[in-house]
Amino acid sequence: MSDPLEQARWLTETVGVRPLTLGCIHVSGDDARTWLNGQITNDVSRTSSGDAAYAVAVDLKGRILTDLFALDRGDAFDLLVPRDRLEAMVEHFDRYVVMEDVELEGREITVISAQGPAAATLELDGFSCDRLGRGGFDVIDGDLDAIVARAGRAGGGLVGEEAWELARLRAARPGYGADFDETTYPQEAGLTATAVSFTKGCYLGQEVICMLENRGQVRRRLVQLEGDALPPPGSKLTKDGVALGDVRSGAIDPLDGRAVLHAYVKRAGWEPGTTLDSDVGFVTVRHVVGSEPRPAAP
């Protein structure tokens, strides 16, 4: 396998392929579409067979339970969730099936994910799932070797976790577990543009999400920062001795040897260009996650 720097370049400039072990919740029954639309933040009321919608499921207080891709299969949906959220999300969703004609079935699956600007040229029989901010497709029950071969002809290839994580951080894409969890609101994690519809109508937790959006009361935002050294996850970030943030995830970018990291930072420190102090030196806010324009490719 090539080195992570080359693989990260594929994910940014051509296409990188990686098998992902995920949880899959199959939602079927006559009421599947209307019921699911009342459970997640994005609109699946008018998607068509073959479409995919990125969304989050939130609790009553608007905090994120998981992110997911809802794959429209015409008369049913497959919800792709992080593997470690499968059992909890089946249990959560099942609680809100009363007498509707809805069946839920959870299983672990392997998805072949092709990510990068050239992913569309592979003409894969899959769903459009942009996982790293540069376009991408997920193939269920796909042939890994065949897809990697296609990627190779498009100037890409098989990538590992290290390159995937680097590409995610460079693109300022929030990751479940690393950057957001059950303590986070979608607005804090910068997920509203990609995962939330404000026109779809009611869903579980919608009232809190809308109030938060309309009143603009988010106290912290996930930001992308850069620095000479990498403060580990959990490190505090300060400005003039005042604690303003904490680090969530990061990596050293082998391209320039500098650290690229994600951290939650309070309003007083989240403006791009703001320099904050950490235990290993200064870091500078480069981008507020979820805002435009998106970070350019390195």
Partner: peptide, 12 residues
């Protein structure tokens, strides 16, 4: 009169 899953608070 019935209850269905959905709505801001979970049940409608």
């Amino acid at each position: 009169v019935r209850v269905i899953g959905g709505g801001c608070s979970g049940f409608t």
